[in-house]
Design a protein around this nucleic acid. Structure first.
Length: 549
RNA sequence: GCGCCAGUAGCUCAGCUGGAUAGAGCGUCGGCCUCCGGAGCCGAAGGUCGUGGGUUCGAAUCCCGCCUGGCGCACCA
């Protein structure tokens, strides 16, 4: 908000006169929880105390004496506690946010810190060996929301899905399908060790036979493999579509072999001098870079002589880097966290100037699904697990996305199916959407469009009830909140925020009437702005903002 | 054994990157319907922030030890 920037600059200026130079962006402003502490507060005096070798309160007094603010911005300044400086904004300033919100429209909350720089966000990246399960769902919601947050803060985002369509798991898949084809021919065969038991394997087998009359036995393993991968990719795409996630790039592991990038990466690693041969295998000396043991890059002949997953992973990230993504974020389940250091080390060992922290990782913990008070057990091997699509079909896309986003990725997530389905206030997504619907309802009854209430036509000075100032402050927070959530890669901050706005909106709505009151014009503006911020926050997370429910 | 993550109200979780008296929802208890949607709102009770040290003006937040739980520790991905 504008007032914040003015205060920030004025404080930086005042600090300069105390012979401490700092940029305005280094001045921390916060919104005190307690309204008695003003509308805006800074801890600047506390942070400067050490450098100036003075008591924080003394620094605060000098800052307050020195700071120069334009007339009409602030009605009072206080020094409180250990040395906080609290600013009480003039009423007109607070309501000024309404004009900003409505002028911003569906862009209110955006900022430009990213400056149009490119960033690659990779997520889901499920192997094409089965349908997407709830863990992938969490990842899809998280990755999509993080990508969205980055877009909102001015980054040029590419959403990318990486398919491991090579490697042992795929062979496993093909053999599993082959076994089911034999079964269809009336010759039951045991599934290969570590094979896939899911019912969907039988479906693929049937489809293969129907599509390949010239290979009823499924003898052509390569054809079976290609067919199975294609079928499962189609399924996964349908799942993602149902979830409303769109990717810009689908990157196939097999393409890294086709373009010789895996070999090239290996050659570069050998040339950089961090490799050695032992027991017939080729190793990378990752211990040189802090790993606890060295890693195999190419298996020995008895194990097939091919590459481990590690090398294509490194090659893939070299490719990202060479495509111009100086920033890359990978969203993965925490069960894959061991790959983090390995991939980074692989990139460092190439000595090609890639930043040590590249790529960034957002790791999320597991999901447990609760239904009817009982945990739904997930067993991938037995093929019994809840898929994303089943979840979406049962509780709806909005609820699934919201529930996956409302917790920090770091903590385990309990998905309560019954709660997600309930149409009551206990359900947070319902609660937030309801607040939006209520604001819309006011305009429906008034027979007006929310866009038809320009703030210029209203006396916003009449918005003086405590519930109204609370709402104004919440609305003013939105851009800052989005920026913080984007910087931390933490979408759950947005859901927390939305619940706060919804709570304030419900409280206000219940206590005061809008239509037919003397303050009607101003309150309509407030309702329009609240509706706008709720809609922007929900849309940012990929959730709809219904006008009625 | 080693590594990563978590431990905050009875339950599920926030806590804005070190700030003021630690917050919200559910649950419990008590209130509120001639109303723009009661599918809602208001209030109360409820805390040794796992634990022991340390860092400093100030710690749920940063550092070290320990306890508990989850996940990982392949020439699988």
């Amino acid at each position: 908000m504008k007032a914040h920037e003015v205060i920030r600059a004025a404080l930086a200026d005042a600090a300069a006169r105390l012979e401490v130079s700092l940029s305005p962006s280094a001045v921390e402003l916060e919104r005190p929880r307690d309204p008695a502490h003003g509308d805006v507060a800074t801890n600047l005096a506390l942070t400067l105390a050490k450098a100036l070798k003075q008591k924080p309160r003394a620094v605060a007094e000098r800052l307050v004496a020195t700071v120069q603010l334009p007339q009409g911005l602030v009605r009072r300044i206080e020094i409180a506690g250990p040395g906080f400086i609290n600013f009480f904004l003039a009423e007109a300033q607070l309501a000024g946010v309404l004009g900003v919100v409505l002028a911003g429209g569906d862009r209110y909350g955006r900022s430009e810190v990213g400056q149009g720089r490119p960033v690659n966000v990779e997520f889901v990246s499920a192997n094409p060996t089965g349908p997407l399960h709830v863990g992938h769902g969490r990842q899809a919601a998280l990755g999509d929301a993080i990508a969205s947050l980055l877009e909102w803060t001015g980054w040029r985002v590419t959403r990318e899905f990486y398919y491991n369509d090579g490697g042992g798991q795929i062979i496993n898949l093909a053999r599993s399908v082959q076994a089911r084809i034999q079964e269809l021919r009336g010759r039951p065969v045991a599934l290969p060790e570590g094979g896939y038991h899911g019912e969907y394997i039988r479906d693929i087998a049937e489809h293969y036979v129907a599509a390949h009359p010239n290979d009823p036995e499924g003898a052509d393993l390569d054809a079976v493999r290609r067919f199975a991968v294609q079928e499962l990719r189609k399924e996964q795409d349908a799942d993602l579509h149902a979830f409303g996630v769109k990717f810009d790039v689908y990157f196939l592991e097999s393409s890294l072999y086709a373009t010789s990038k895996v070999e090239e990466t290996m050659r570069r690693l050998v040339a950089a001098g961090h490799t050695y041969e032992k027991d017939g295998a080729l190793w990378l000396r990752t211990t040189d870079f802090g790993d606890d043991k060295d890693r195999v890059m190419r298996k020995r002949a008895e194990k097939g002589g091919d590459y481990t997953y590690f090398l294509p992973d490194v090659a893939y990230h070299v490719d990202k880097w060479e495509r111009g993504f100086t920033r890359a974020i990978n969203v993965q389940g925490a069960d894959h966290h061991s790959t983090v250091t390995r991939v980074r080390i692989g990139l460092q060992a190439l000595e090609m100037g890639i930043a040590p922290g590249y790529p960034e990782y957002v790791l999320h913990q597991m999901v447990t699904v609760m239904k009817g008070g009982a945990e739904m057990k997930i067993s991938k091997r037995a093929g019994s697990y809840m898929t994303v699509r089943e979840l979406v079909d049962e509780v709806g896309r909005d609820a699934v996305r919201y529930f996956f986003l409302m917790r920090r990725g770091d903590s385990h997530l309990v998905f309560d199916v019954d709660l997600a389905k309930s149409q009551t206030e206990e359900n947070p997504v319902f609660y937030v959407q309801m607040a939006h619907a209520r604001m819309s309802g006011i305009f429906r009854v008034a027979g007006r469009e929310p866009a038809s209430v320009p703030p210029e036509g209203a006396d916003l000075g009449t918005l003086t009830q405590p519930e109204e100032t609370e709402l104004l402050k919440e609305l003013a927070d939105f851009p800052n909140l989005v920026a913080g959530a984007a910087a931390a890669l933490e979408p759950h901050r947005v859901t927390s925020y939305l619940e706060g706005v919804a709570r304030a909106a419900h409280a206000w709505y219940h206590k005061y009437r809008v239509l037919g009151e003397p303050q009607e014009a101003a309150r309509l503006v407030l309702a329009a702005a609240v509706r706008r911020v709720l809609a922007n926050g929900l849309h940012l997370l990929g959730i709809s903002a219904p006008d009625r429910m």
